[in-house]
């Protein structure tokens, strides 16, 4: 404890040396994050057609969004549908794999690496193109289904499956949530399981009565991060289906992108961006409010 205090005193004394080292980061945030955000907030109340000057139009962009833009409603609906499929599947997959990997098996670190790999390569354009090929009519999955006398299934080109397929594809990148779950699982005191074993509790019951409550704060964290990512889904969908077939994967970020770079309406798309921010804030806010009922913090 003494050593810690001594350390922190030196830190205070040399505080501005730390700030000097942080300077590139601070400048980056101010210049490339905060300033553009302020600009986009201003633009959301303006009509700005990329060329020329922006003119103030008050709440016109928001009025148009709620009363005239039919693709706004479609895209909000589809995005919620995506979130509701993507987030639970991703969390369950991450937790199950973490549970399996939380053991002392030979070569466990190799398995951990393998399951984490999709999160590193998964969001790239190359991976999206690969998925598109794997799931196409002549692709690997349909060939296997063909041997079983099933299909072919148009995973990505039929309006009834496209969004579902994309959600599963996204959930495949559960690696980072898995690593966080793994850390959470390691924190659960072993004596709880030992006590349960002595009482003769079944493993399944142990999982629901010990593991889940003990890692509920980790679940909350992963849930919130998952929600934030899911609402902003873009790259995979833009590359693979680009909103089609028949607008069945026309999610919110795609609408925002098209408004900005096809219609060149930067003001309107900034307004869309801020509405998305509010939707994410509201949803995560609700999750935090509800967390009082189901998250258990130790100590």
């Amino acid at each position: 404890m003494k050593a810690f205090r001594a350390k922190s005193r030196t830190f205070e004394e040399e505080g501005w040396r730390a700030y000097a080292l942080l300077l590139p980061w601070i400048v980056g945030v101010l210049l490339f994050t905060l300033w553009p955000m302020l600009q986009s907030l201003f633009l959301s109340f303006a009509d700005y057609r990329i060329y020329g000057k922006a003119s103030f139009v008050g709440l016109e962009n928001f009025r148009e969004m709620f009363f005239e833009d039919r693709m706004f409603k479609t895209s909000v609906f589809l995005t919620f549908k995506y979130v509701l499929m993507f987030v639970p599947v991703k969390l369950v997959a991450a937790l199950l794999v973490a549970q399996v990997l939380n053991r002392n098996i030979k070569g466990i670190s190799l398995y951990r690496t393998i399951y984490y790999l999709p999160s590193i390569v998964g969001s790239s354009v190359a991976m999206a193109v690969t998925w598109k090929m794997v799931l196409s009519r002549e692709g690997f999955v349909n060939v296997v289904l063909g041997y079983l006398h099933l299909g072919p299934i148009d995973f990505l080109s039929s309006p009834s499956y496209a969004l579902e397929t994309l959600a599963m594809m996204g959930a495949w990148q559960f690696g980072s949530s898995m690593v966080i779950f793994l850390a959470g699982l390691k924190q659960v005191p072993q004596e709880l399981y030992e006590a349960a074993d002595v009482d003769g509790t079944k493993k399944m019951r142990q999982f629901f009565s010990i593991t889940l409550p003990m890692i509920s704060s980790t679940i909350l964290f992963n849930l919130v991060m998952g929600l934030i990512n899911a609402f902003q889904v873009f790259t995979q969908i833009a590359v693979i289906t680009n909103g089609g077939p028949a607008d069945s994967t026309y999610v919110y970020m795609l609408h925002l992108y098209r408004t900005a770079f096809v219609s060149h309406r930067m003001g309107y798309s900034s307004a869309l961006a801020w509405v998305l921010t509010l939707i994410i804030l509201a949803t995560t806010g609700l999750v935090f409010l509800s967390s009082k009922r189901w998250v258990y913090y130790q100590e």
Partner: peptide, 9 residues
Amino acid sequence: PIEMTAANP
């Protein structure tokens, strides 16, 4: 079928 054509690269 349009689902088939839509799946083309």
